Simulated scan of single mutants.
Amino acid sequence: MQAYIYRSRKKEDTYVFLAKEDGFDVLPAGLDAQLAPWDSVMTLELHPERKLARGNAAAVMENLSQRGFHLQFPPASTIDPMSSDWGTDA
């Protein structure tokens, strides 16, 4: 299965995988308005065993089949930035 991957210019590390090249008509209008414009990143051949940097290829394929798109958000940070030692003595 082919996936066409685009990166949001508005939200860092946010990507949409589309089942059809430039098939943005499948995105909910509100979602597209919040994240567009999109930059093409790559075309990827997906199969269930394929390793992805983030996410599960089988889940991406299911979303592409059912919805025509898969949205990938940045990973949630589990580190509390306020707990770090910033090198101050205050």
Rank of each mutant, 00 (worst) to 15 (best):
R54K: 10
V26N: 04
A57E: 00
T78Q: 13
K10T: 11
E49W: 04
L31S: 00
F73D: 12
A59G: 04
F69L: 10
L31Q: 06
A19N: 02
L27I: 05
V41L: 11
A59R: 05
Q2W: 12
Y6I: 12
L35T: 07
R67V: 01
D32K: 15
L52W: 04
D22T: 07
M1G: 14
L71R: 01
T43F: 02
Q2G: 01
A58C: 09
I79A: 11
T43W: 00
Y4C: 04
Q2T: 07
S77P: 02
L64F: 10
G87L: 02
R67M: 15
I5C: 03
Q72N: 12
D80C: 15
H70W: 14
D32Y: 08
M82L: 14
L52D: 08
W86V: 15
Y15Q: 02
E21N: 11
W38F: 15
V60D: 07
M61Q: 00
E62I: 07
P75D: 00
N56E: 08
K20D: 11
S65H: 13
D85T: 11
A36C: 07
L35Q: 03
G55E: 04
D22Y: 14
Q66M: 08
R67G: 00
A58R: 09
Q2H: 11
G55T: 05
G23Y: 04
A33R: 11
P37N: 08
L52G: 02
L71F: 04
S40N: 10
R50G: 02
A3Q: 01
H70Y: 14
P75V: 06
T14C: 08
A3V: 01
N63V: 05
D22E: 06
F17S: 14
A53D: 08
P28Y: 06
V60S: 06
T43N: 11
L27S: 01
A76Q: 13
H70P: 00
P74D: 07
F17H: 12
R54W: 05
K20H: 13
D80N: 15
F73P: 06
N63Q: 11
D32P: 06
